[in-house]
Design a protein around this nucleic acid. Structure first.
Length: 402
DNA sequence: CGAGATTCATGTGAAGTATACCTTTAGGCTTAA
DNA sequence: AAGCCTAAAGGTATACTTCACATGAATCTCGTA
């Protein structure tokens, strides 16, 4: 019986008709031929970056826009186009794209430069080298041949917030060191106010040009979804109102197209798994739920144990207390938990920083609050839905063996 | 009653420490002439 | 003598600790009406 089941376990996959023709079209790595509803932004960016075809260094560019407003896609499409045109004229243009938010990859000055160097094919160790040495190596590989390098730094505000603006200053000065190659920097941020507290020199050279990407509205999202869906799905598998509902959900959250596409994909995957031939609006509800949980869960899972224990104590406390928990309480519980699972506890100083980082990640919302005679503390609220936090709590308690 | 001093619980900055990793260098061993 | 390998020395980044000082409104204190 068991053996028979095993034999057939994959048979269903084979025989089951897939709803997709090309799932990749809905994944975030996919770069389409063109972007919809971004004509004016496309023109602006093209005008700025296009100057490298005349052999000039393109101005540094600063792009503002929330996640999923097409910043990355637009730049990537343009770069692809540029490289194609440039090849004909014999110039070399190279694009480096890096998301500065990625933990352990690009969240410090050293790691950012090291990662950039690695993308250019250098072997750079994770630690041990002086930072200027890493810079030197990076410069050397950029300057190895005449080329224009376009450096796209996504979510650059996160990096600067953490490590200061020295990186920007160094990067913007890079051109003075280079003889053959040229570099221009494209900074992407979703915080409009971010450049305000920047070193004036770095600020002026970074934002030589600025382009703002506004969020998509629901109608535009529908167009995008339809466009992609026609490539991704077999015809007729999308039920009535599915596109509209996806768009509406995403529009509610600052018009995030990436999210809308993912929502559609996950919904279809759910339908497929249930052996249904039609994607229905009900699947979207399920998908939204799943994505919400999954996103937070993935984030939490990749954190160090100390973060997880800190978060777990916050979750425990805030399920008992509705109106915010304080650092002191969290730390007390945290210490107990550490003892229970034989983990050497960190100091309160460090836990305080960890709470600040959880805040940055958007899992909690912690604001400093002075309670007069009763001191000063952070008031911590969860910024994830209750159902999700319950699931995270459950998963953590199992994972940490508490 | 109100202005200024006090107080509490923790935020926050700076400096120090442990760890993991890097390059350089000196010493020892092998090898070929 | 030249070449190669190894281990120690000296250096760095990162995560964390230790130390010390900063914060800021509720509460207290004391002078005044």
């Amino acid at each position: 019986m068991v053996e028979k089941d095993l034999k057939n376990i994959f048979r269903d996959f084979e025989s089951k008709a897939s709803l997709f023709t090309d799932k990749g079209v809905l994944q975030s790595a996919f770069i389409p031929e063109n972007v919809l509803h971004r004509d004016s932004e496309l023109q602006q960016v093209a005008g700025i970056l296009g100057t490298c075809l005349r052999g000039e260094r393109p101005s540094n560019l600063f792009i503002y826009g929330k996640t999923g407003t097409g910043k990355t896609v637009t730049t990537k499409i343009l770069i692809n186009q540029l490289t194609r045109v440039a090849q004909k004229s014999g110039r070399k243009i190279q694009l480096l794209y890096l998301n500065c938010k990625l933990k352990k990859i690009a969240d410090t000055e050293y790691r950012l430069i090291a990662q950039l160097g690695r993308e250019l094919g250098k072997e750079i160790p994770i630690t041990g080298l002086p930072t200027d040495e890493v810079y030197k190596q990076f410069y050397a590989s950029v300057d190895a041949e005449p080329q224009t390098l376009i450096l796209v730094l996504d979510e650059i505000d996160q990096l600067i917030k953490k490590t200061g603006d020295g990186v920007l200053y160094n990067l913007t000065r890079m051109n003075e060191e280079l003889t053959r190659a040229r570099v221009s920097i494209v900074g992407i941020s979703n915080d409009l106010t971010f450049t305000n507290n920047l070193d004036p020199r770095a600020k002026s050279s970074l934002s030589e040009e600025e382009v703002v990407f506004p969020p998509y509205n629901a109608i535009q999202l529908q167009d995008i979804l339809r466009d992609r869906a026609s490539l991704a799905f077999k015809s007729g598998v999308l039920g009535e109102g599915v596109i509209e509902k996806c768009a509406a959900y995403a529009a509610r959250e600052h018009g995030d197209a990436r999210r809308a596409l993912e929502l559609l994909r996950v919904a279809a995957e759910i339908a497929e798994r249930n052996n249904e031939l039609l994607v229905m609006t009900s699947h979207i509800d399920l998908a939204e739920k799943k994505m919400e949980d999954q996103g937070v869960m993935d984030l939490v899972k990749t954190q160090p144990r100390q973060f997880q224990v800190s978060l777990y104590s916050i979750l425990l406390l805030s399920s008992k207390k509705k109106d915010g928990v304080f650092t002191g309480e969290v730390y007390e519980l945290y210490k107990q938990l550490c003892e229970k699972i034989h983990l050497p506890p960190l100091t309160q100083r460090r836990v305080s920083d960890i709470i600040a980082e959880l805040d940055m990640m958007g899992i909690v919302n912690a604001k400093v609050l002075s309670k007069g005679r009763y001191g000063r503390t952070r008031e911590i609220h969860l910024s994830i839905p209750l159902s999700t936090s319950e699931k995270v709590k459950h998963a953590l308690s199992e994972y940490l063996c508490i």
